[in-house]
């Protein structure tokens, strides 16, 4: 048993010791952030079933509310759905015709088909943002093959990229996070740009060509780079202020539920070396022993392909 004096000293010393430990955690977070985030991811993995249980009543209430709203206005809703169905049938016919034409054209061009990407579908376990970041955690189950850098999409468009991978859970950094930079292509003005998140609902467009300003309302797609394939729908251009183009994302970033994570594989389309830069094996200094029959020839080039060096 400690004496009264020792207990008093301990009581006085405990707060400074705990503050020092907290400062240590702050420093650890600055130096080794992945280690701390790994612990957090493990806790989320552990809590994932409980989260589903917690939000289940909320989901049921939302479904009931939608049903109730539909039931109160059945005639109008039916008319709207009939119109929409008619329009969708038209677009279905157009899509089938275009797919057939596309197939014929690809066939005549000897088009090399792209590999089908692997994907997993997961439910958003939790919104993982905090005041300064925009990220979500997905429950993708055990035995998944998701890797860092994989692309996450919802039903409508690009959502973000995977930044951390746990045993059951992956963390997706959304396109409107402050740290997100995605290379994009503008569909009609054919300019390239970088889409930079700024913690608002609509990420900004930066580094676009000054002679090809983005056009209001044009489509924005991903530019093929590293593990990001080309042509994924991102959103549309909108000018929130003069000379400030932003992208209104197709994906519903505020209300995420089911998200697919695609693995497009490593980028193995390496450009060939430039003609003047071909590295060649060095020939042995003296491959042949004895006098050469053509040693009288002046200045033989000893290495082919060094023209550019």
């Amino acid at each position: 048993m400690l004496s009264i004096h020792a207990r008093q000293v301990l009581a006085k010393a405990i707060l400074p010791i705990l503050i020092l430990l907290a400062v240590g955690l702050v420093l650890l977070g600055l130096v080794r952030r992945p280690a701390v985030d790994g612990v957090r991811l493990m806790a989320t993995d552990f809590m994932a079933p409980a989260y589903h249980g917690l939000v289940w009543p909320q989901g049921r209430v939302a479904v009931w509310l939608t049903d109730l709203r539909g039931a109160t206005d059945l005639a109008k809703e039916n008319a709207r759905l009939r119109d929409e169905n008619r329009a969708l049938r038209h677009w279905y016919d157009v899509a089938v015709a275009l797919a057939a034409e596309n197939g014929r054209l690809k066939n005549s061009l000897h088009w090399i088909p792209q590999t089908v990407p692997q994907y997993v579908t997961g439910r958003v376990t939790r919104d993982d943002g905090g005041p300064y970041s925009r990220a979500v955690l997905l429950d993708v189950g055990s035995g998944h093959q998701v890797r860092i850098g994989d692309v996450a999409l919802d039903a409508a468009g690009l959502l973000g990229r995977v930044t951390e991978v746990g045993p059951h859970t992956v963390r997706v950094l959304m396109i409107n996070d402050d740290a997100s930079r995605i290379p994009v292509t503008l569909a009609s003005s054919h300019g390239d740009a970088i889409m930079a998140g700024d913690d608002t609902a609509a990420p900004r467009l930066i580094f676009y060509p000054q002679d090809h300003h983005p056009v209001e309302g044009e489509r924005v797609e991903t530019r093929g780079q590293s593990t990001m394939p080309a042509g994924l729908p991102v959103g549309t251009v909108h000018y929130s202020a003069p000379n400030r183009p932003v992208v209104v994302p197709d994906a519903d970033l505020d209300r995420l539920d089911i998200v697919r994570v695609f693995d497009y594989g490593d980028d193995d389309s390496q450009a060939p070396d430039a003609p003047g830069r071909v590295r060649v094996k060095k020939l042995p200094q003296n491959p042949l022993t004895g006098p050469l029959p053509f040693s009288w020839l002046p200045n033989l080039p000893d290495m082919p392909g060094r023209g550019g060096q």
Partner: peptide, 29 residues
Amino acid sequence: PALAVFLCGLVVEIFSFGPPGTVLLSLLV
């Protein structure tokens, strides 16, 4: 007690994704 504050701070840190240690340090201060 101070130890309870520390434990609470750790739980908040684990279940949030902000910069590590800031909530804990703020609570202790």
